[in-house]
Design a binder for these strands. Sequence first.
DNA 1: GATGAATGAGTGTTCATTCAT
DNA 2: GATGAATGAACACTCATTCAT
Lengths: 215, 215, 215, 215
Amino acid sequence: MSAKPERQRPERTFIESARRAQIVTAAIETIAEVGYTKTSFAKIAKRARLSSTGMISYHFAGKEDLVGAVTEEVMRVATEFMQPRIRAAQGYTGMLRAYIEANVELLAHHPVHLRALLEILNNARNAAGEPVVDATTISRIGLLTAHLRDGQRAGEFAGFFDPGLMATAVSGAIDAVITSRPPGLDPAACGRELADTFARATRPCSENPDDPKDT
Amino acid sequence: MSAKPERQRPERTFIESARRAQIVTAAIETIAEVGYTKTSFAKIAKRARLSSTGMISYHFAGKEDLVGAVTEEVMRVATEFMQPRIRAAQGYTGMLRAYIEANVELLAHHPVHLRALLEILNNARNAAGEPVVDATTISRIGLLTAHLRDGQRAGEFAGFFDPGLMATAVSGAIDAVITSRPPGLDPAACGRELADTFARATRPCSENPDDPKDT
Amino acid sequence: MSAKPERQRPERTFIESARRAQIVTAAIETIAEVGYTKTSFAKIAKRARLSSTGMISYHFAGKEDLVGAVTEEVMRVATEFMQPRIRAAQGYTGMLRAYIEANVELLAHHPVHLRALLEILNNARNAAGEPVVDATTISRIGLLTAHLRDGQRAGEFAGFFDPGLMATAVSGAIDAVITSRPPGLDPAACGRELADTFARATRPCSENPDDPKDT
Amino acid sequence: MSAKPERQRPERTFIESARRAQIVTAAIETIAEVGYTKTSFAKIAKRARLSSTGMISYHFAGKEDLVGAVTEEVMRVATEFMQPRIRAAQGYTGMLRAYIEANVELLAHHPVHLRALLEILNNARNAAGEPVVDATTISRIGLLTAHLRDGQRAGEFAGFFDPGLMATAVSGAIDAVITSRPPGLDPAACGRELADTFARATRPCSENPDDPKDT
DNA sequence: GATGAATGAGTGTTCATTCAT
DNA sequence: GATGAATGAACACTCATTCAT
């Protein structure tokens, strides 16, 4: 999230950066196609037309390092796509809608990247059994929770829901839609309807007179 | 989903059924603990106090067969827990609420089973890379979709949402809540709030006068 | 050092014990021939006429486990050879002589075993860089030190040397002789002369009137 | 052992000599720290702050060549330290004492160099499995043997021991002391006591009236 | 001359499955 | 029918060395 994330400590040669990018691309495609579990260095090397798996180990410190690079790349693409859309929206409600719509629309533009990311989030574990990339690293639920809480304080969202739980629900619903790739529905309509759903669920009481419960 | 799923084609001796159950139990615990990816016959055999992995291969046709048996068992437990709660509910809205609440509550009673199931749904792939157990196999989204559509026709749910998409969203939200095990919230309250959320989202226009969109 | 060291927890099948012994034998020969560093599972498997290295991993928990088994076996052979000779000796001086002579003579009877043991002691390290089998495990220097100290108290050895340092010197001298396999000297004479050397070095002042230093 | 061992056949540029020295130093430190077995070009390059292992291969014909250079350097340091001390001693007995003491004292001044040398002597093997640097190459035992024999002829040492065997014993004892780094004993006292030990062991009969054996 | 990139054989280990007993 | 033994492909990763630039 720093201004120049690519200017990290080890200065990389042009050719090395190119190789790394090539490997990362092959890794993304492989993970999206066969799933994280069945992805091996051998398959990635084959897709990247590399002669050996040793090549990947040469450019990346290990499997975790490669997974980290893949995550970074996907997040870069996703952020580049979503951020302008979210920034253009007005108000807390508008931004929530923009976030949901942009996220679903992202599926239409970068389905492979998104599937790879979900595979990593769900499956990648290190030797200790802990997630290699946990959800907080990519800061989805955290940011969403903060946004919902701020919107509640500003009075744009209803006060009767727990922000953390709602953020989890929103994320889960989006991921499920992404994973299931609902056939017959175009992504734009899909995103709009999902945004509608959570707009109704978070609307304040005043606009929602007979709310069934307020905890 | 047949009435007696365990009395399938090959009639099993008592001792064989016991062995299979023992292995399935060990598999569920192992998958829940270390994740599907890191689960191997060796670890299952160790937990089941079997001396060799050959034993598992003897009782199950292969990894897919074992995963299928695990899924069946988890679904049996889940159905046994949820069905009475859902049947006791009144109307489409009440049943939807009961379904969501029962599902979250199930986490409190059978966390190991649920985690194992989610691991399998997310990770288990056959040699061709296709999911071994897809979501439709366990008929969650399908049944939910049908329920939502029927409720729409009966006028209990609003008509402006797509049943399939809403079913996907509901399932995804529940799974996310289950996976994240929100700290500081007790399961009952969690389930109630999640049910509230989708109650608001599916309520008809009449009770929800100024709905922002109706596609 | 327990009475029945082979009656450990896991009861092994006859055939498994045979395989383990076969592998241990091949490992000893390989280590003695090419050195610990150049010994790999592949070479051991080849010598043992096993089809794959996986076989070794099947019978031993890992490289460390195999090295431990090799050490145990060599120590078993060495103890079996040396113990009766040492027990037959009289007095502290006699036992020290017997120990040295038996150790050198052991080289003539089991040169391969001894070379393998020395290779392991000098080279085998675990991932953390620590010796897999340290000298104290096989309790050579520890026992020797105690023997020298007791002999000093009993007045059989001179009091002017440090028992630990002398034990180290004795062990080092023996190992050097073993490693260099002095050509042209028969082992029996070799052992006798080495024992003479340390007999002179440890003899009390009374028999050694003009000792140059007494710290 | 030539007068100017570093001025060998190929005349090297200043910068090349510097690079070689830098690599040799890094190699010594690495071998001493992690052991010869776990030392690789990669680790040496890292310590020498070189960007690639190719650099090492460029300056040295191979691993054996590097090990040779390391040995030369350590021997240079050791000789520089020990030679004046030995030359200053009087008589065969005095020189033997000086040699032993200087060798142990060397450990206090250059522990890293010494550990590296012992690692190489014990572990370094070429492809054929033969030692890359054998003990005779560094001429320790050879020179010592000659010294002992000359001292015997001169009557300073007893005649009843075999010079080669005694030289081996002396070297082995010193190496064992060096390797074990006896805690709680300061190096000077250590060296003195070890020298005492072999002084007693090599003293002629006349000063040692009741010698137990004379072969 | 010097270097970063690449190589491919080799490391120990795990895996699901098969088979003779 | 049941089981311990064996298989061999696959795994991530390291190695010393080579080579085009």
